[in-house]
């Protein structure tokens, strides 16, 4: 029979994980806003292609944000919300409203890379805390961001 301590869910109290998830949420939100901006304002010969690619990227991010926020709730932490509060939690820079199409792509690429480097730390913290469910969710997010990076990089070649 397992002893009582073994069945205790300790993940809920791991603040390194929940703080990391807050950053992941904020990074994802900022990235979604930046992708949406690129979708609206991109111009040039590649307009149709980029306009549509950016749309599928921000739609994917929108769903991911909900999943991250609900994971925070499952870990008994509050999900941070509101544009100002989220902006304070992220280091992803805002792009100017209008830049050449390739600069929109490059600035999104840099944002994805920053998100990935933060998410890798949180994935590690979740693994160390034995929180396999959070780890699994972050692995899914990483795969998606890495795939988007590949697409953005290919466009820039």
């Amino acid at each position: 029979m397992p002893n009582e301590l073994e069945t205790l869910d300790t993940t809920a109290t791991n603040t390194t994980v929940t703080k990391g998830l807050e950053v992941l949420l904020a990074d994802s939100y900022q990235l979604m806003a930046q992708t949406h901006l690129a979708h609206w304002n991109v111009e040039g010969a590649d307009f149709f292609q980029l306009h549509e690619a950016f749309q599928s990227q921000y739609e994917e991010l929108f769903e991911a944000i909900d999943e991250i926020a609900e994971r925070l709730r499952a870990l008994d932490a509050l999900a941070p919300g509101g544009l100002n509060r989220l902006a304070a939690l992220t280091d992803i820079a805002e792009s100017p409203d209008l830049v050449p199409a390739k600069d929109f792509v490059a600035s999104l690429l840099v944002a994805h890379e920053l998100l990935i480097s933060n998410a890798l730390k949180t994935r590690k913290a979740a693994a160390e805390a034995g929180d396999a469910e959070t780890e699994d969710m972050i692995i899914g997010r990483l795969k998606s961001h890495q795939k988007t990076c590949w697409m953005l990089k290919s466009f820039l070649k």
Binding site: A106, K153, K157
Partner: peptide, 12 residues
Amino acid sequence: DRDYAMFFKLRR
């Protein structure tokens, strides 16, 4: 143009 992302970061 060939190493666009890297020059973009440096430029920023």
